[in-house]
Design a protein around this nucleic acid. Sequence first.
DNA 1: AACATTTGCAACCGCGTGCTG
DNA 2: ACAGCACGCGGTTGCAAATGT
Length: 166
Amino acid sequence: MAPKNSEASTNSKMVMNKGAWTGEEDRKLAEYIEVHGPKRWKTVAMKAGLNRCGKSCRLRWLNYLRPNIKRGNISDEEEDLILRLHKLLGNRWSLIAGRLPGRTDNEIKNYWNSHLSKKINKKEKNLQSVQLHRTASPKTCEAVAAGQETVEESSKGAAIRSLASM
DNA sequence: AACATTTGCAACCGCGTGCTG
DNA sequence: ACAGCACGCGGTTGCAAATGT
């Protein structure tokens, strides 16, 4: 895959750092934000003396350097909340993260993709095999599933609207 | 021990939206 | 009304560590 960078490409001579952040870069970013605050990321990147694009700085701050960030060890309560919110909101990771203090959307998205989606797939497969044994025709199953989907979609919309407006 | 495969997470990318001049 | 910019989001990728053969 050819590397692209929309912000970096605005200055053809400038080659931005990419990949993992070093301790030194973290320190520079944190020090700058402590003084000037987390805004104008392009300026932050330049003024902090970081050869990074603004986007990269923003992401690093939000997902790693920001104070009060919880890392790892997602508790059973948090997992349960994620599952319920995902059922309600779908892949609205930032909204879900907003309900979990100290957690980032990226962390929740990663957790979902690597842990929960598998769990759910397993559950669904189990459920399907049970249903196939119990119910009459596959068409009945489809009809039932479609009906549930419609109801879920409408409540999803209401939930997103109410959370987004907060 | 050596290699292959899988997993988990940090970071990147493209796109949509809102703000500003 | 419009263009350009900055920001935020969700999807995807890259890679090191862990695990399996």
